[in-house]
Design a protein around this nucleic acid. Structure first.
Lengths: 232, 232
DNA sequence: CGCAAGCATTCTGTATGCAGAATTTAGTTT
DNA sequence: AAACTAAATTCTGCATACAGAATGCTTGCG
């Protein structure tokens, strides 16, 4: 049903980050992706203790690979390990969210600057297409595809910076916040603001105005905090 | 001798990052710290395949907790996992190093800005003491303590920013580069330059000049790349 | 002499079993 | 009735065992 066994790891596309070209899907990766999704989607609520036996049974794997996956997620900061007491889904306080957004704003600002330098024209056109698609979804008020495209645009800018380390740390913080954003707390009246900022973003990118793009991206994150803060 | 068994995990002080107050030392943490050190210190050379049986025997633990530690380190980016072929110590190309330093410069710039806002006077005095100690070591040309104090100062500034997310991602990138820096490739003629930059740093921090501190820290990282680039 | 195919060995990946810590529950005492 | 203690149960942490993949070696053939 909702939880097919992972014995045959399929349908586990995490649009998150593709590490390596065609990294053959190992069971480990499948479990990591699955549990990460369960956390992001709230199926595993923050603060809940993860029962290795239960969760392993639900996923159709034994405790050993599950434990390995939990250690991996612990390093990402999505779960916390208490020695002798197993793993707990990490709680993020409002300050954690704010702090992460500040850092994300800075990272995206840097990414924008680098993207203006390093992106090819074709790269930029791809982002333009994503942007146009997103605007269509906005016109239709189709939230979920809008949300996905929005994330994709931000990830794309990171990719255009051609800085792997930057994309990596961005991805980690992004994963933490996806849980928060997934809840969908940005009210419709604030939606328009975000869209306007995105218009400015794509314009700055297409004119390769590094300072402006950097500034817009950083400000965008600060505004995101304003839009989300009351909903946490 | 050099590799005491980890059955009684002692003497594993990694000045890296203390997660949580008095996080009781689990075997997992001990293995992670130990293997991380082995990678940083070159005992496990980049590109070498990690043999679970051998390494486990050397550390006096079985494969299970060792594998869990490797998954953890893989998430940190210090080792790479090839499905079916185990773990390999990750190689960092010169571009990887440069990219990481660019991001680090940006992160430290942000940290400096935040530190000027959020640090207490006592906090700043601690950094001043670290700085003075470091200068003593510089006067004596005592490289290793200098190196450690240097790292501590940078970590301290991150701590003073009172932004956990920032300190976290900084720590990850820092760990990657420690291996490079550990080699100690900054020639003595360039040493003076780094010291001068540190003088400016502490001055800016004490006067809580956020813009200046931020700018100095970012520039410091850019210079670090200049100092190191030929030695990689 | 070089190359390929098949076999033997080694290593990884996963499951299971067991010991000890943690937690819960029941019982006793104040 | 509340609190403390002790026993029982559950869960984690680690080691070991086993199956399958990967690697290296040997042998046979071109």
């Amino acid at each position: 049903m909702d939880h097919p066994t992972l014995s045959s790891p399929a349908a586990l596309t995490s649009d998150t980050e593709e590490r390596g070209p065609i990294a053959r899907l190992s069971l480990h990766d499948a479990i990591v992706a699955r549990v990460r999704d369960m956390i992001i989607e709230g199926e595993l609520a923050p603060g809940t203790r993860i029962h290795e036996g239960n969760l392993g049974a639900r996923l159709g794997v034994s405790r050993t690979p599950l434990r390995e996956a939990l250690k991996f997620l612990a390093s990402e900061g999505l779960v916390e390990l208490s020695p002798g007491r197993g793993a707990v889904v990490r709680q993020f306080s409002p300050k954690d969210v704010q702090d992460s957004l500040i850092v994300l704003g800075n990272l995206e600002g840097l990414a924008g600057r680098l993207a203006c330098e390093n992106a090819t024209d074709a790269d930029i056109q791809e982002v333009r297409q994503l942007h146009d698609q997103m605007m269509e979804m906005y016109a239709k008020r189709d939230r979920l595809p809008y949300f996905k495209l929005n994330q994709n645009i931000h990830s794309a800018i990171l990719r255009l910076s051609k800085n792997e380390a930057l994309a990596y740390v961005h991805g980690i913080l992004q994963a933490r916040l996806r849980r928060i954003r997934y809840i969908g707390n940005e009210g419709p009246e604030k939606w328009a603001g975000a869209v306007a900022e995105h218009e400015e973003m794509i314009a700055a990118l297409e004119s390769r105005d590094a300072d402006r793009l950097s500034q817009v991206l950083t400000a965008h994150m600060a505004r995101t905090w304003e839009r989300v803060r009351n909903a946490i």
